[in-house]
Design a binder for these strands. Structure first.
Length: 438
DNA sequence: TCTGGGGTCCTAGGACCC
DNA sequence: TCTGGGGTCCTAGGACCC
């Protein structure tokens, strides 16, 4: 405050930082279109794992009013009739494109927080009231020229308002994918345009409650009674309201916080009823989760496994069990034994189980020497076990497709994941690079 | 027949301790 | 039968995000 007054007295311009939220438009669909010219300018949708529902649509598919989250089996025919191209999701491609995108952004800003596979918050210097549109246009062109991806840029005083600005940029045609809420004079009228359920952090439950109180848009939420909001939504609600008012409550987090858990869970393509099947699935997820931990140099101190019936089933059942480990580990052999033992506790013969998963929790950095006094294994034996796992990881990394794995993972699985419509194109797998015969 | 997966943060309530 | 206040940890579950 003092500083601010000093600036005014000195008659100088107050210089501030602005926050921009950048996201890739129709990201998954655009990645596919970027590497396959045939798909460009065509209606295209991407399916979730298991080819379950629609998770991305190209601009052309949006025009055809195909909805996000729609179950694939329900609109398969309609898509067919409309000539929409359908693809299973190809996460190695999207992950790789994301890395390239973030690297380009990094070179063009002061601070960056990678928020998701297709979104980043960045902090940029704003000289007093200066329009940042030229900078944004340049960045947008750069990304398009390098990656063939279109981005949207929303700029404002803080993260939540930058999110809103990004929404506005998508809505307002003339903005060409850029909107700066920070320099607009009539902020309230823009806030009125955003429905309360489109605000970052307000989901279906909360928006239902807000609407019952007569709060319909961002402006009304900003001005609503602070105590009532706090009583119902706690600090989360308070933060949202303060950010709507223009305060900075949410910092840009440049350093990725250390992960708190690693989860591998999946729906089955068909429901399962046998304990053996459940064990089998959990074993495969455990192998994967342990690999993930090792790749990130992490170890878990506790694990949870769970299973459940379909949300859509009349007979609801779900159960999880938690186990604290004697000492932190990322060794597949150790965890596998525990998980298989625990799986009996969550199994129930009378229910059709449709999903299961394992969670590795209380993660810490992997340290080889910190061994519990309760563990009597000799150093030599531990060395051998360590080497074996390392060898397995490196062979699998080199040859892909799990050339080596645990016996239990190799059994036939009738419930495995569906991914029938994979594009087959890849920039991360040398085998899949298209061959051109002249 | 078929409705994703992987995360985070927050709160409430119980158990336990001094 | 009466039997405090405050702290911490664990666990479950709700809500939200992309």
């Amino acid at each position: 405050m003092l500083l601010y007054i000093q600036y005014i007295i000195a008659g100088r311009q107050l210089e501030m930082n602005a926050i921009a939220l950048i996201d890739g438009n129709n990201f998954y669909a655009s990645c596919e279109q970027s590497i396959n010219p045939y798909l460009r300018n065509k209606p295209l949708v991407i399916l979730s794992n298991n080819d379950g529902c629609i998770i991305a649509r190209s601009a052309e598919a949006r025009i055809l009013k195909i909805r996000m989250g729609e179950p694939y089996f329900k609109i398969k025919e309609r898509l067919n009739k409309l000539g929409v191209i359908v693809l299973s999701s190809n996460y190695s491609l999207y992950g790789d494109m994301s890395k390239r995108l973030m690297n380009l952004l990094k070179k063009n800003c002061e601070k960056i927080e990678i928020y998701s596979i297709d979104e980043a918050f960045i902090s940029i210097h704003r000289p007093h009231n200066k329009d940042l549109s030229p900078w944004a246009r340049k960045l947008r062109t750069l990304i398009y020229q390098n990656l063939g991806l279109t981005i949207t840029i929303g700029i404002a005083e803080n993260k939540l308002r930058a999110k809103l600005a990004n929404k506005l940029a998508k809505r307002i045609n003339y903005s060409a994918g850029i909107f700066d809420l920070g320099i607009t004079n009539d902020k309230n009228s823009y806030l009125k345009e955003i429905n309360v359920d489109n605000i970052w952090g307000i989901g279906t439950q909360t928006s239902r409650w807000l609407r019952s109180k007569g709060i319909k848009n961002a402006k009304e939420l900003k001005d609503m009674n602070q105590n009532e909001l706090k009583k119902k939504l706690g600090v989360v609600g308070q933060r949202i309201q303060l950010e709507l008012k223009g305060y900075q409550c949410l910092p840009i987090e440049e350093k990725r916080n250390q992960k708190k858990e690693i989860r591998v869970s999946r729906s089955f393509s068909k429901p399962i009823t046998k304990l053996e099947e459940l064990k089998h699935a959990l074993a495969i997820y455990t192998i994967r989760a342990s690999e993930k931990m090792r790749a990130q140099n992490l170890q878990a101190s506790s694990i949870t496994i769970f299973t459940r019936t379909s949300h859509y089933s009349k007979f609801n059942y779900q159960k999880s069990v938690y186990k604290k480990l004697v000492e932190a580990t990322n060794d597949t052999n150790i965890i596998l034994k525990i998980v298989i033992e625990l799986s009996k506790e969550i199994y129930h013969p009378e229910y059709k189980l449709t999903k299961a998963g394992v969670l590795m929790q209380e993660l810490s950095e992997f340290t080889y020497f910190q061994k519990s006094i309760l563990n009597y294994s000799s150093k030599n034996k531990l060395d051998k076990e360590r080497k074996l796992i390392q060898t397995i990881d490196s062979l699998n990394n080199k040859f892909k497709n799990e050339v080596i794995t645990w016996g239990i993972a190799k059994k036939n699985q009738s419930w495995g994941m569906n991914r029938k419509l994979l594009s087959g194109t890849s920039i991360t797998d040398i085998e899949k690079i298209p061959t051109i015969i002249i």
